[in-house]
Design a protein around this nucleic acid. Sequence first.
DNA 1: GTCTATACCCGGATAGAC
DNA 2: GTCTATCCGGGTATAGAC
Lengths: 207, 207
Amino acid sequence: MTQGKGGRYHHGDLRAALIDTAIELIAEQGVRSFSLAEASRRLGVSVSAPYAHFVDRDELLAAVAVQAYELFYAELVPQLSQFQTPADRLAAVARAYVRFAGVHRPLFEMLFEAGLDKSRHPELEAAEKPIDNAFLSCVRALPDPGETTSEDLARAIEATAHGYTMLLLDGSFGQPHEAVELAAERAARASLALVESRHLLSRPSVG
Amino acid sequence: MTQGKGGRYHHGDLRAALIDTAIELIAEQGVRSFSLAEASRRLGVSVSAPYAHFVDRDELLAAVAVQAYELFYAELVPQLSQFQTPADRLAAVARAYVRFAGVHRPLFEMLFEAGLDKSRHPELEAAEKPIDNAFLSCVRALPDPGETTSEDLARAIEATAHGYTMLLLDGSFGQPHEAVELAAERAARASLALVESRHLLSRPSVG
DNA sequence: GTCTATACCCGGATAGAC
DNA sequence: GTCTATCCGGGTATAGAC
C-alpha cells in the first residue's frame, strides 16, 4: 500500500509500511506477541530491514501508539459538536471513549499494555494529552464550577470511562456487540451522575 | 520455606514453593517477563520439575492469580465493618481497592494483564466474585434503592475505583506514595457522588 | 518427584556485502 | 536501504534415567 514497484520495498516507504503492518498484527494477535520478525516476514523484507528505520522494537511500537492516540482522539472529537450542554457533551465523550475501546480493542489495549517507557518516548505523552483535554474543556464549560476543580471532575469522568472500558474488555458485560453499547451507555450515565454530584468530589469522603 | 531438607525439593512441597517464587518474581519484574525457567532456577530445581505440578506456565499463573484475588479480598473485608453507613462503606471499599493496587502493584497488574483465558481457568471467576460482592452487598444495604438496580450502581462504583486505579498505575497521579492516597481518596469521593446521584444511572443519558 | 539432556522454536540484534 | 548470514539469548516442553 506504500511501495511503488514489485514485492520489495527497495524504494518504498518501509517505515510507514511497518507501522501499518504492526497495527494489523496487533489487531490480530495483540501487542504481547508482536515481533519485528513477523512484521518483516509479512512485508517480505529481511528481519534486519526494520533497523534502518527504528532503533528497536519499542520505537516502532511507540510510533504505532502515537497513531492509535490520534485515531482515538479523532473519534472523540465529533461528539463535542453534537450536543448542546456541557454535561451532555461529557456523557457523549465518555460514551465514545468506551466505544473506541470496544471497536478498536487491540489498539486500545496496546496503549495501556505495551509496557512502553514514557520517559523514553515523550511523544506518547503529547499524543495522549488531547484526550484529557477533550474531557477538561467540557468540564470548563459547565456553569457553576463549584468547589471542585475542573481537573478533578474531568479526571473523575475519565477514570469512570476508563473503568467501564476495562470491565468491558474483561468480559464483565458479556461478549457480543451489544456489550459495547451497554458499557458505553453506563459510562455516559455515570458521567452525568458525577457532574450532578460534583460538589462531593472535593469534600472528605467520610465524616 | 516449604522444604524440609537441604537445597533440593526432593521431598518438599514444590508446588507451593513455585507459587511463592512466582509471586516474588512477578513482584520484581512483572508478569510479562515471568517464566517457569527462571522460577525453577531460583528454586534450584531443574526446568522440567514444574511440569510435575502444573501442566503449563498458564496453570501456574492461574494459581498465583487465585491467591492474589484472595489477598485482594482480604484487604477489602476489614473496611466493611469499620464504617457505619452503607455509603461510607462503599467509599471505604473503593479506597481500599485503589490502595491494594498501589501497594501490591505487580500482583494487581497480573490479575488484569496476565492474559489468562478465563474459560480455561474457571477458578479465576470464582476467586473474583467475592470482590464484586463486597461492592454489591454495600449497595444492597442502602435505603431507597430507587430505580437503578443494585448491580448497576455496584458496577458503576467498581468501574470508577478500577479506573482511578489504572490512572494511578499509569502515573497520572505522580510517582510517590502520596499518589496512592490521592487516587484512593478521589475514588472514595467519586463513589459517594455516584451514590448520591444514583437515580441518574438508570435514565437515558441524553434527551 | 526430580534429574539430565535434548530438541525445538522464537525473538533481538549486528556485521558486512551489494 | 536492503540483503544474507550469523550470533546470542531466551523460553517451552518432552524423553528417559534414577
